[in-house]
Amino acid sequence: MDLFFFAQYMPMYLKAAGLTVTLAAAGIGLSVVLGLICALVRFYRLPLLRPLASIYIEFARNTPLMIQLFFLYYALPKVYLKLEGISCAIIGLAFLGGGYMAEAFRGGLEAVSRTQIEAGLSMGLTRLQLIRYVILPQAFAVAAPALAANTIFLIKETSVFSIVALADLVYVFKDLIKEGHSTENNLLLIGFYLVIILPVSLLFSLWERRLRRVGFSV
């Protein structure tokens, strides 16, 4: 074990970890918004938008992130617009995640019982109030485990971002292979991912426990 190696290359890894966390947060945040919109579009059977949302969800869920990124980064500039690596990464992750999040929310929305909605309507709530105060809190509670699983999955998916020329953790790892010290390098790579992923997983399980205590979840 060479402690000097850790000291020397820690800053590079830290910087890369910062990039991974930032991109993951932006992409996952957007995917939650996109997924919620798609799920609501399908829940309310909005004409025209509904088939579009369904087609999008199927495409996002049935293709790998890597080909989505390749298409955004290498193919799209030839016919339409050029995007930076960072934009590609965030858009790609949001595109992929939106489909998965939409499915998670669909499960949650379908679990909200008819009587809850009718009770809300009879109290004179507007459609937006109904969504905000009755439907969403219950849908989120039911969808929580799926949202957690998707979030972890999406953080893991960020590991491919070096193909759109971003210096993420995997990129740094590969760059340092030539320096030797493979044990130390291996530990840093796996360590940084676990340091990012485990706390997120822990937070989600605390959230799920809280939801169970409140009695929201089924």
């Binding site: 590991s159 995997v170 590969k174 991912y193 485990l198």
Partner: peptide, 13 residues
């Protein structure tokens, strides 16, 4: 919990 690409790299290299 570990990204599959990380596992792949660890094993490969």
């Amino acid at each position: 919990f570990t990204p599959i690409l990380v596992l792949l790299y660890l094993f490969y290299y």
